[in-house]
């Protein structure tokens, strides 16, 4: 029996085999869609760049060299140098670590938070549901970016606070999804069976309801990552996110503003990095949605 047969078995013998088989099918379906492959490759490159930044970057991200100020892109400095003579390409490479950290942390904070609130709301129903969803809806009808800005203003500038602020404004969409999914399965026979067997609400939610929300959550989180990257870059641009000399892409664009008319590359280059990575998440998210949720094809 080959691995492939094991993965595609019609009657898996363990939960682990079933999950692996499902993941394999999603993966092969993704491979058939060129744009999602492109998205996956972009994210893979982002991961590798972040991991191997010290070896990839030809110069130090913070090492100044005033003699080499504001050099245009060349064979030596692929993306030129900034006003302190730092190599922009090296800074963009190191910046990938910051972007990846932000994206991961925001996803790790907001998705579980939203999941939990949504699942509780859907599972218990009644006034718990009313209060939690009222709260969620208020958050949803507010402008996310402005809210994040206000939060950072109160918490103080810095990358950690930026992450917290973005996470605080991102969870409501996940809560909505988790609630909708929970409602569809709350009354299923097997949930009642588990309850009859004496499982308490926490056990039912964590072991039986949350796992079923994962596929729609993964789609949504992937699609949202582009927005998270843009918000983080925006905070950096305004000066509230990552602080200098950190090579955060948004902050780098902000430094380049002064020279935009003559030394266009200082502000432009980090922007391309932001666009490519965001597009990568969009492509992958779109592809995932087509595979996992075909009926909503083409909607946003």
């Amino acid at each position: 029996m080959t691995t492939r047969d094991w993965l595609l078995a019609d009657s898996p013998t363990s939960r682990w085999q079933a999950n692996a088989g499902r993941a394999y099918r999603v993966f092969t379906a993704l491979l058939r869609n060129p744009l999602s492959v492109l998205g996956g490759v972009i994210i893979l490159v982002l991961l590798l760049t972040a991991l191997f930044a010290p070896w990839i970057a030809p110069f130090s991200p913070t090492g100044q060299s005033l003699a080499d100020r504001l050099l245009p892109p060349s064979g030596e400095h692929w993306m030129g140098t900034d006003e302190l003579g730092r190599d922009i390409f090296s800074r963009v490479v190191w910046g990938s670590q910051i972007t990846l950290t932000i994206v991961l942390l925001v996803a790790l904070i907001s998705a579980p938070l939203g999941l939990l609130i949504g699942a509780i709301s859907g599972y218990f129903g009644g006034w718990v549901d009313k209060i939690l969803m009222g709260f969620t809806d208020i958050f949803l009808s507010l402008p996310k970016l402005i809210l994040a800005l206000a939060f950072v203003a109160a918490l103080g500038p810095g990358i950690n606070n930026a992450i917290i602020a973005i996470a605080i404004t991102s969870w409501p969409a996940y809560a909505r999804i988790a609630r909708a999914e929970t409602l569809t399965i709350r009354n299923a026979e097997y949930i009642s069976a588990v309850q009859l067997a004496g499982a308490g609400p926490i056990r039912v939610i964590v072991q039986h309801i949350l796992p079923l929300c994962t596929s729609s959550m993964i789609i949504r989180v992937t699609l949202d990552m582009a927005g998270v990257i843009l918000t983080a870059a925006g905070l950096g641009f305004i000066g509230l996110g990552a602080q200098p000399p950190l090579p955060e892409w948004g902050a780098m664009i902000s430094r380049g503003r002064t020279f935009i008319l003559d030394q266009w590359w200082v502000a432009t280059m980090p922007g391309f990095a932001i666009i490519i990575v965001s597009l990568g998440f969009c492509f992958l998210g779109d592809g995932l949605r087509d595979v996992l949720d075909p009926k909503s094809e083409g909607k946003s």
Binding site: F237, I253, G271, D286
Partner: peptide
């Protein structure tokens, strides 16, 4: 998709 991936401030610059 570019509408979701391009930073507005960058496009302005």
């Amino acid at each position: 998709l570019l509408g979701y991936s391009v930073p507005a401030f960058w496009l302005g610059l």
